[in-house]
Write a protein that binds this DNA or RNA. Structure first.
Length: 433
RNA sequence: GCCCAGGUAGUAUAGACCGGUUAGUAUCUCCGGCUGUCACCCGGAGGGUCGCGGGUUCAAGUCCCGCCCUGGGCGCCA
């Protein structure tokens, strides 16, 4: 029997709604095999869900039945058959098999149980990530991730932003702060980009409003649930906007993401047994100084200090929602953030509870001021010559932010480990698979 | 990098305080039986250098030391 015109491949989810006697092809991986003498029930999963197919010895014959008897779980199969009403408690319709073919025979035992009956540690699951993704709960995270990425792009397109791609291999490591991964670029030293910051700023002088979704690299031995060495960042930068205007863009992006996930992923949210966080515009805005006052009721913290993990956790208990902390001390913000006054910067962080999701602000657009700020932060303007000279060509005032996509996924899927939201995460201890 | 907890069949775990017979259970894999299963069921079998190295002891999965790995907390993260 061939995949001729009368047989059509249906996804598992579609089979439930097909009329009796529909000729169909079921393709997928075997989740469970329940032999019952001369009858055999096989549950077949594909990316849409679970289908039940029935192998009857009187129909497929001795040889056909032997295919089922030699089947292993997780094998990829193709079954030709007709839809019939099922007496199963779990599915309405099932497929009575006329021919069963094994497309790829699996080799048990498996390092994890992708049906989730026996739980495995995240470490074991990540070692076998390709198989782990067959688990509907795991797959749900990445279906939601897809919606998030799509939603982000649609919002920015609608707002008139141009999508760009900046280099990830860079020649200068002088930005200070996070450690960069070094690599050999023919006979030169090069580095993996930790952010598109300087490039996206430069692009505002021509493209005006840009955004980029890309992976960046930080060589920090951070062993936490919210740091990885390779992460996906959503970056935006816009000419003529100030810090409050780009905060509104962030609100719009986040609210649209939640709306789209609610619309397109209700099934996945069910599988994950999570409710979407609520988000109402405008998000709460508290200044850094107000945050310090709030924290000072619980513990002594000096104005000017950066907020530590325990401070953020305390704020997270007060604000179980999206909120901004704006106008941080100039001294703890990078050189490219614009000064507000003697002590403050035109900066902000977007938070959800204790988790920092995005960081941004209005940028310095004057070359002299930028050079001054570099020196204040003990960086050498000579190392930034390629960047600084662009400010001679007419640099519009501009603002922007960068948002951790993986962290946003944590908030949406209710996962407390960032590794759950990344297909193949990279942390200080994990480089494979 | 620091602190805490842990490492026992492929996976998940019991046993450790209080050292002593063949390391138990679930799942898994294989074999046999069953024409309506539902994480099928029933019967049988397989699978463990108890993380690695050293020490104490007549005797170590169990006690002690070092290392590695894992989980969590913190630090680092312009």
């Amino acid at each position: 029997m061939s995949a001729g015109s009368q047989f059509k491949r249906y996804y598992s989810k579609e089979i439930l709604g097909l009329p009796e006697e529909t000729k169909c092809i079921v393709r997928g991986w075997v989740e469970d095999i329940r032999p019952l003498g001369k009858l055999m029930f096989i549950t077949v999963r594909d990316r849409t869900g679970l289908a039940q197919i029935v192998l009857n010895r009187n129909i497929v014959g001795e040889e056909g039945f032997a295919v089922g008897e030699n089947l292993t779980r997780q094998s990829v199969i193709e079954a030709f058959g007709k839809v019939q009403k099922s007496r199963s408690q779990n599915v309405l319709m099932e497929v009575l098999v006329e021919k069963l073919t094994v497309l790829s025979r699996s080799s048990p035992p498996f390092p994890i149980d992708p049906t989730g009956r026996v739980f495995s540690s995240l470490d074991k699951r990540l070692d076998a990530r390709a198989l782990d993704l067959r688990n509907p709960q795991v797959m749900a995270i990445f279906k939601i991730r897809h919606t998030v990425l799509k939603s982000i792009r649609e919002t920015f397109y609608r707002l008139g932003f141009i999508e760009v791609n900046t280099p990830k291999i860079i020649g200068q490591a002088a930005e200070g702060g996070a450690n960069l991964f070094k690599l050999t670029y023919f006979d030169k030293k090069a580095y993996l980009a930790q952010s598109p910051q300087l490039y996206k700023e430069q692009l505002t002088m021509s493209l005006e409003k840009v955004f980029e979704i890309a992976q960046y690299f930080r060589a920090e031995k951070s062993n936490t649930l919210r740091h990885v060495c390779e992460f996906t960042s959503l970056d935006m930068e816009a000419a003529y906007m100030d810090e409050f205007e780009v905060m509104e863009v962030a609100e719009e992006v986040v609210c649209n993401v939640l709306k789209d996930v609610e619309k397109e992923n209700s099934e996945e949210l069910n599988i994950l047994r999570v409710k979407l966080p609520r988000a109402e515009r405008p998000f709460k805005r508290i200044s850094y100084t107000e945050a310090i006052e709030k924290l000072n009721k619980k513990r002594r913290i000096e104005w000017g200090e950066d907020l530590q993990t325990k401070d953020l956790r305390m704020l997270g208990r007060v604000f179980k929602e999206f909120y901004f902390i704006y106008h941080w001390p100039l001294a703890i913000k990078p050189f490219y953030i614009e000064r507000l006054d003697e002590r403050l910067s035109r900066s902000f962080d977007l938070m959800y509870g204790y988790l920092e999701l995005a960081s941004g602000g209005k940028r310095v657009s004057d070359r002299q001021e930028l050079e001054k700020r570099l020196i204040e932060q003990k960086l050498d303007p000579k190392d930034f010559e390629y960047h600084l000279r662009t400010f001679n060509y007419g640099m519009p005032p501009h603002s922007g932010w960068g948002l951790g996509v993986d962290r946003l996924l944590m908030v949406i899927t209710g996962k407390d480990n960032i590794r759950e939201t990344i297909l193949y995460p990279r942390d200080p201890r994990r480089l494979v698979p």
